[in-house]
Amino acid sequence: MTIHAQALLFDNDGTLVSSLLSVQRCWTRWAGEYGITAEQFGRVELHGRPAAEIAADLLPAHVVPEAVARIEDLEVEDVPNGGVHLLPGTRDFLGALPAERWAVVTSATRRLAEARLDAVGILPKTLIAADDITRGKPDPEPYLLAARVLGVDPAHCVVFEDAPAGLQAGRAAGMTTVALATTHQAHELTADLVVEDLSALSALVTDGGVEIAVRP
């Protein structure tokens, strides 16, 4: 299978980098600080959603701004503690792409996203973060904004995601979707293509864009 694209849009956590250890440490501490029980916490989908939406599901509205600032501080401060690393294939795949052909589209704040990307040596020319949008994934707004910034028709964009919410956002934006089974089982992911991680794919830059193929 070969996918033709003019722009490639990547989620960050779970797609380019793994931050699961850091996320678990920080959100567990955060939940304890705000008196959230394990049962309450277990009912909320964490992955692929902005912190503000998660906090709003768990806390009274007047507490949410302070709580969101707190989890951002905890996660940024935790980055040097070894809980963030590149997923297989990330560096080689991104290294094959022209800087103007791809963007990172994350549910994290810009401050947190930049801290994690900097820690692993990834420097995107275009970064869309939670600060830039009014509605987070699964709403298509983040991906539509990325397409607009890159100057590419959404129909010619490919979204790379590991979370159902992000894949839903990509589909709603009218984009081709590639799911990476890094944080969810393959059968839990609905996409045009499902692979284990970016090491399963190759990218060939042509005059018309980028050809993405599954490695034999």
Rank of each mutant, 00 (worst) to 15 (best):
A99G: 03
A213D: 13
I36E: 08
R116Q: 12
T176H: 09
G121F: 11
C26I: 04
G166F: 11
I36D: 07
R101T: 15
T183M: 13
G35T: 14
V195F: 06
R171E: 12
L46Y: 07
V84M: 01
W30T: 05
A119D: 12
D207S: 14
V105A: 05
T182L: 02
D11E: 06
T182V: 06
A163H: 12
L123T: 15
F93M: 04
V120S: 02
V149K: 15
G209C: 04
M1R: 03
L74E: 11
A163K: 04
T190C: 01
F160L: 05
L97A: 13
D13F: 06
E72I: 14
A103F: 14
R43Y: 01
P65L: 04
G83I: 08
V152A: 09
A181S: 11
L94G: 11
V64L: 04
A7M: 04
L201D: 05
D131F: 08
W30N: 06
A115C: 09
R49K: 15
V195D: 01
L97Q: 13
A103W: 07
G95A: 03
D73M: 05
Q24D: 10
G208S: 13
A115T: 13
V44S: 03
A181I: 09
V205C: 01
H4A: 13
L144S: 04
H62T: 01
H156Q: 12
A147E: 08
G95S: 05
L20G: 04
A129V: 05
Q6F: 02
I54W: 03
V17Y: 01
W102Q: 07
A7Q: 06
H4F: 08
A113K: 09
P154T: 09
L20W: 04
F93N: 08
T90A: 15
N12A: 14
I128H: 07
H85N: 10
A129N: 12
D92C: 00
P140Y: 14
D118K: 13
A56I: 03
V17D: 01
P50Y: 06
L112T: 11
W27D: 09
F93I: 11
V64R: 11
E66P: 00
D13N: 12
T177C: 12
H4T: 14
T206I: 09
L94I: 12
V195I: 06
A165N: 15
D118H: 13
S107K: 11
I71D: 14
A52N: 04
D153H: 10
I3S: 02
V79K: 07
I36R: 13
A181L: 06
E188C: 01
N12R: 01
P65W: 12
A203P: 07
E66S: 12
R25W: 08
V76T: 08
L21N: 11
G209R: 02
L59H: 10
K125C: 05
T2K: 14
A165V: 15
L127F: 11
A67D: 10
P138N: 07
N12F: 02
L112I: 05
Q185G: 09
L87I: 02
A130Y: 05
H156Y: 09
A146G: 13
D73F: 13
D78E: 09
R29W: 03
G42V: 02
E77N: 13
A113H: 15
I122F: 04
D132M: 15
G209P: 00
E66L: 11
